[in-house]
């Protein structure tokens, strides 16, 4: 058994049986995974060591970032993203103001109409996630609410509205202080299977299982697509939880914690 730089046991001494990493080579391909439960840091701010300023908007970015968090500038090609019409602002109906953590979130109309969209993304304020990971942000958790966003394309960007224009996210999470501008992307393949990839966000992206305690949610490796099941919950920022469901699905039928096994597969 050979040990892969990413921690896998491999029967093949040349290439890792699980991730394909070249064995015996320098382990430069490992991106460190942020430890679970790390406190939420501000998503944007002053330049930190090892960061690079964006030539387009001066936002400070991680040294190995693929895209600028501020404007979506592509560091690899030097290209600006095409301008995108700004999405309508999220509807936050404080109708359950003061709800205790754990109370059933109220559903409100979607910001982008999910009508006709084959998939919808349910975006919720999750007080349980906030108690575990977001309380350090110092920003009080809003009321537990939930909204639904239609997912028309094969990729859905999660993040914050850029003040400089540029590639706006399809799921706008401006209220959550722990969300980066280009935080994560949801990817759908031709078979309808979804994956999430963290775009090198400041606070990371975690995936848990619907109905399971948030403590069981685990951070995903940045830049590496992670397979989702129909029971997966994606956590970002201080309090945001996202679930993907078929556009015609009855939400009640999807809230059952029963279902297929979680975890990555090919």
């Amino acid at each position: 058994m050979a040990l892969c730089p990413n921690g896998h046991d491999s029967a093949d001494p040349d290439w890792c049986d699980r991730c394909g990493a070249k064995l015996g080579a320098l382990a430069t391909s490992v991106t460190p995974t942020p430890p679970a439960g790390s406190p939420v840091a501000p998503a944007t701010g002053a330049a930190v060591p090892g960061s690079v300023p964006c030539p387009n908007c001066d936002t400070s970015n991680r040294a190995n970032a693929l895209f600028c968090e501020g404007c979506g500038y592509d560091f690899t090609t030097g290209q600006l993203p095409p301008p995108v019409a700004p999405p309508s602002p999220p509807v936050s109906t404080p109708s359950t103001q003061g709800a205790a953590p754990g109370e059933e979130p109220e559903r409100v109309p979607a910001e982008a109409s999910p009508d006709g969209a084959p998939w919808v993304i349910e975006v919720s304020v999750d007080p349980e996630w906030y108690s575990a990971h977001g309380a350090d942000s110092g920003v009080p958790c809003p009321a537990a609410t939930s909204r639904r966003v239609g997912a028309l394309g094969e990729t859905v960007l999660l993040g914050r509205t850029s003040h400089r224009g540029g590639g706006g996210p399809q799921v706008v999470l401006d209220d959550d202080p722990g969300v980066s501008r280009r935080h994560a992307q949801l990817l759908r393949d031709a078979a309808g299977a979804w994956r999430v990839v963290d775009l090198g966000s400041t606070n990371g992206t975690s995936v848990g299982r619907h109905g399971a305690p948030v403590a069981d949610a685990a951070p995903v490796e940045p830049s590496k697509p992670f397979d989702l099941t129909d029971q997966s919950v994606v956590y970002v920022g201080a309090w945001t939880a996202l679930r993907i469901m078929p556009g015609d699905a009855d939400p009640a039928s999807l809230s059952s914690p029963e279902g297929g096994a979680d975890g990555a597969s090919s």
């Binding site: 290439w15 991730c19 990493a21 070249k22 430069t28 391909s29 190995n64 830049s223 590496k224 697509p225």
Partner: peptide
């Protein structure tokens, strides 16, 4: 999955 510059994967 995307890997950084210099990585080699099967």
């Amino acid at each position: 999955p995307i890997a950084p510059i210099g990585s080699e994967r099967l």
